[in-house]
């Protein structure tokens, strides 16, 4: 039995599917959040150098990873929407941007609150911090550009070009700690070498990463359903849903 994936590229059928998926991701996000916070605050030991301050890692690293990951996913959907002229793909890119911007802000905020006690300063024009700040401007630029254009389809195209151009910033952020002599530390967790962290600290951090991933999916699906309704309000299927009271 072949699955007709293209069935879900239509806003109408995806709207219903997303509605069914959201509760699943909400429950996962809450369970993982509780587990992550428990491991982070009650299981992971005090750091011998940084004391308790290092516990900021349990939101700083997930926020930073999500800020980069969500931008790549946003640019991917924007590119698909631009190439294939598929409305739902562009709606997805629009739905991702606010959540990506929030995580970028949180990465910068928690980084500053971690930097003050450890580095003695809230901010430094370090390659990692500066490129992350540029990422925040890219997200804000994407949202402002789309808001400034009345026709949604033209806004999608303009936003897609900006998003695709901005993708170059992601590897710059990731490799900045290797290319330049940065105050920000190098990767503690990477694919090709053993993690430079205690296991329980690493577990707490990874659980929180998955929690923020599940949260992002739930919130983005929730937002994309609202965007679908806004853009398709004239469509017959919306009136149908309205009559059934299943909006």
């Amino acid at each position: 039995m072949a699955i007709n994936w293209f069935k879900y590229s239509s806003p109408a059928s995806f709207y219903t599917l997303a509605g069914k998926m959201i509760p699943f991701f909400v429950v996962l996000a809450i369970v993982l959040l509780i587990a992550g916070l428990y491991v982070g605050f009650f299981v992971a030991p005090t750091d011998f150098q940084q004391g308790e301050a290092y516990r900021i890692i349990f939101i700083h690293v997930p926020a930073a990873w999500m800020s980069m990951f969500l931008y790549v996913v946003m640019a991917f959907w924007a590119g698909i929407g631009l190439a294939f002229n598929t409305r739902l793909s562009s709606m997805f890119a629009t739905a991702i941007a606010p959540t990506g911007a929030m995580f970028t802000f949180l990465a910068l905020w928690t980084g500053a609150l971690w930097g003050k006690p450890m580095w003695g300063t809230w901010w430094v024009w370090d390659a990692r911090l500066t490129s992350e700040l540029i990422l925040l401007f890219l997200y804000i630029g994407f949202m402002s550009l789309q808001a400034a254009i009345d026709d949604p389809r033209r806004a999608d195209k303009a936003g897609a070009i900006l998003a695709l151009v901005g993708v170059v910033n992601i590897p710059i952020i990731y490799f900045s700690v290797q290319w330049w002599n940065t105050l920000h530390q190098g990767a503690s967790v990477s694919v090709n070498q053993a993690p430079a962290m205690a296991t329980t600290m690493l577990m707490g951090m990874l659980i929180m990463v998955f929690a923020s991933w599940m949260y992002s999916i739930a919130v983005i699906l929730k937002r994309v359903r609202v965007i679908i309704l806004e853009r398709e309000s004239h469509a017959a299927w919306v009136a149908e849903l309205q009559k059934k009271g299943a909006i």
């Binding site: 308790e52 301050a53 516990r55 900021i56 939101i59 928690t110 971690w114 003050k116 006690p117």
Partner: peptide, 10 residues
């Protein structure tokens, strides 16, 4: 450990 402002602020 004296870092409450920074941890809870985050």
């Amino acid at each position: 450990g004296g870092y409450g402002f920074y941890v809870w602020g985050s």
